[in-house]
Computed example of a mutant assay.
Amino acid sequence: MTAFVLATVLGILFAAGTFLLLRRDVLRIVWGVTVLSQAANVYLMTMGGIVEPSADGVPVLAGHGEHVPQTTDPLVQALVLTAIVISFAMTAFALVLTYRVYQEHSTLDTTTLEGEP
């Protein structure tokens, strides 16, 4: 059941990102790329899965009691956290560039921008 819900959410996120990416407005294209990158992050976290504690225990929680809960892989969490930070910086940069395009051309429509010299 959980896998079905996660697959559905991922499908919706990828579909929404693709839909926004195919629009004519530059701002929607930027948000489409952002949604796609966050969907990829959710996908990576989902594929990281929940790890059953081994005999040695989860390294982070070893020695903290007898019952060690199920956890996700910390390596995947670190990679996704790094990707989120980089994605945030790139989104901010893309939004600044979008604002600059709007200042120069007074439009964000890609078909109008295409015909300008």
Rank of each mutant, 00 (worst) to 15 (best):
T2F: 14
E66P: 09
M45L: 14
T111S: 10
T8I: 10
Q103C: 07
T18Q: 00
L20G: 05
L44K: 01
H105G: 08
G17P: 07
F93V: 09
Q103S: 09
R100E: 15
G65V: 04
A39V: 02
V58M: 13
N41C: 08
Q77R: 11
H67A: 15
P74T: 05
V80N: 02
A92S: 12
V80K: 02
S37D: 06
A16V: 00
Q38I: 03
E66A: 11
L13T: 03
I84A: 15
L95S: 12
S37R: 00
Y99S: 14
R24S: 12
F4K: 07
V30L: 01
L20H: 07
P69I: 02
A62P: 06
G49N: 09
N41E: 03
L20F: 04
D109V: 05
V58H: 15
F93G: 10
G63T: 02
L95R: 06
A15W: 02
P53E: 04
L36T: 02
A55N: 12
T98F: 10
V9S: 05
Y99Q: 13
L27A: 11
Q70D: 14
A40E: 01
E66N: 12
T112S: 13
P53S: 04
R23P: 01
G11S: 09
A83D: 03
P53V: 02
G32N: 05
F88S: 13
G115L: 04
E104M: 07
T18G: 07
Y102I: 10
S54A: 10
T2V: 06
D25G: 00
T2W: 13
V5Y: 11
Q38A: 04
L36I: 03
T91C: 07
A92W: 04
T2I: 10
Q70C: 08
P69S: 07
G48C: 04
L20W: 02
V30A: 02
H67V: 13
P117K: 09
G115K: 08
L36D: 06
W31Y: 10
V51W: 11
L13V: 03
S87E: 06
Y102S: 13
E116R: 15
S106H: 15
R23T: 02
P59I: 01
V101S: 05
Q103Y: 08
V51Y: 06
V80T: 05
L10I: 06
L44H: 04
Y99W: 15
V35M: 14
Y43I: 00
S37C: 00
A15R: 01
T34R: 00
I12F: 12
T110D: 08
N41A: 12
L113T: 09
D56H: 15
L6P: 03
A83S: 11
V51R: 11
M90E: 14
M1C: 06
P69T: 03
L108G: 07
A94V: 07
T18C: 00
L21E: 01
R23D: 05
V33C: 03
V80Q: 01
R100L: 15
T2M: 12
M90H: 13
L79R: 14
R24A: 11
L79N: 12
D56V: 01
G48R: 02
L22M: 00
L21Q: 06
L36K: 06
T107G: 09
F93T: 11
G32R: 02
R23Q: 04
I12P: 05
L6V: 11
H67G: 10
T72W: 08
